[in-house]
Amino acid sequence: MVEEKELVFALQSISQRDNAFRELVSQYKERLYWHIRKIILNHDDTDDVLQNTFIKIFRNIHRFKGDSKLYTWMYRIATNESITFINKKAKQQNVTIEAVKEQLISKLESDVYFEGDAIQLQLQKAIATLPHKQQLVFNMKYFENHTYENLSEILDTSVGGLKSSYHIAVKKITAYLKSNETF
């Protein structure tokens, strides 16, 4: 693992940029993939969004000022790209964003790259019922183990606000699972 400051310096210098970018991709590809996958749900679209995310990162790295951590900056780009993807899909099909999300969740059952059991599928359905921000907070806290401090930087929300968002999300999910107990 190269120190973040050194990596940023290398990314912003012309001579070292390409090698540094290679390093950046290998360090962050998996984490960003899983972050996007939780929002987009299917593998192929996640792959597209992940590539667009790295293209954006490459093009805009000279604008990175270092006032936040590099990795929170990249997560912000990945989050925005994912949201843009869903919004675009909704526009193309001329349906609401909620309808697109419902489509994504309904396809999960037959998705070859979803090997979750009944309760894992129910959990995804429960997450899908949450408002967008709570979905993000829940996924990032529960599955990706981000600290509230990092989340605060990525989502530009106070730690207090995030804690209560997460608590509300957990309560809603538990209630959903209880009322849909089929296993």
Partner: peptide, 30 residues
């Protein structure tokens, strides 16, 4: 307590070897 009752894994998978060739694909795309 609620967290403990939830599944630990999400159930999502990737195609085999996906991450191994991902670097090359991304760099090519960029």
């Amino acid at each position: 307590i609620s967290e403990d009752s939830l599944p630990k894994e999400s159930g999502f998978k990737t195609p085999e070897g996906y991450f191994d060739q991902l670097d090359a694909v991304i760099l090519e795309g960029v």
